[in-house]
Design a protein around this nucleic acid. Structure first.
Length: 269
DNA sequence: AGCTCATGGCGAG
DNA sequence: TCGCCCTGAGCTG
């Protein structure tokens, strides 16, 4: 699940359930026990997301840094909390709610300096008000690296993952192997605006939908699609299936240890 | 029971 | 570029 929209949604959901309360903090799995003891029954005062990084603040300056990685999952529920399974890294629980974190790449108590360092090594996030798309373009437009790789580089732009990358390149008719320097200013402005819109909708719906209504399979006279990752998409994990627009075959290839998906007919070099 | 794969990212070589 | 870390679902037997 975890691209940037998921993390922003989690920041908001953690806040909605626990902001201003002093929950029990535990680490049934044990790997976060020492920090959990320090934080137990202290007030959750803020939550924040930057790209795929989630931050929970307890008291004044006690920040918990969470990164879900590829496998991390968060589940919310109403009290009473069930007995935790042995993979729960972090549980918050109060009289009304509980939330379990499993399988994160990172879950650590950090200092404000360490938090600043994390922000400093992340690029602008389309879901944050402080993001500057021109700063991203300055970097993209000077690079011989492919636009597909640049979009996944969190130092360049934070929060885009494998699904948004594939989908936004399709929506703008851009071949994933095109070099960053060959993306025009107009194309970049359109890509950025689209990411802001798509990812905001992703936060609202808690899933990734990218297919315009007029291209939905039903509207195109094709059978409705049942998709195992949730959202309605043009190319992501649709290798060898017909393109929603031109009917040609969607292709897949490896790029930097991830699977890339695109329509060679619709996306121009 | 064991294998593969997944919306991520790090460090070693 | 590879191996590795984290978990769980969906296969295959």
């Amino acid at each position: 699940m975890p691209e940037g929209h998921t993390i922003h949604r989690l920041a908001s959901d953690y806040a909605a359930r626990f902001s201003g309360t002093a929950p029990r903090v535990t680490s049934p799995q044990g790997k976060f026990s020492d920090a959990a003891d320090l934080l137990d029954k202290s007030v959750l005062t803020a939550t924040e997301a930057h790209g795929k990084h989630l931050f929970l603040r307890f008291r004044d300056t006690d920040w918990v840094h969470i990164h879900l990685g590829l496998f991390g999952k968060v589940t919310f529920g109403d009290a009473p909390a069930p007995p935790p399974t042995d993979t729960v890294r972090l549980r918050l629980a109060d009289d009304t709610s509980y939330v379990d974190l499993r399988g994160p790449t990172a879950c650590a108590l950090i200092t404000p300096d360490e938090k600043r360092a994390i922000h400093d090594r992340l690029g602008p996030d389309p879901l944050r008000d402080d993001a500057d798309p021109d700063a991203v373009y300055r970097r993209v437009s000077r690079s011989r690296t492919t636009i597909a790789a640049l979009l996944m580089d969190q130092k360049v732009i934070a929060g885009v993952g494998n699904v948004y990358r594939a989908e936004v390149l399709f929506r703008h008719g851009i071949d994933p192997y095109r070099a960053g320097k060959d993306v025009t200013p107009a194309e970049w402005r359109a890509i950025w605006a689209d990411l802001v819109e798509l990812m905001r909708e992703g936060v609202r719906n808690n899933r990734i939908d990218t297919v315009r209504p007029e291209h939905m399979p039903e509207a195109m006279g094709r059978p409705p699609r049942v998709d195992d990752h949730g959202g309605e998409v043009y190319v992501y994990r649709r290798a060898n299936l017909p393109c929603h627009i031109c009917g040609g075959e969607i292709r897949t290839a490896g790029l930097a240890a991830r699977n890339l998906f695109w329509c060679p007919a619709c996306q121009r070099a």
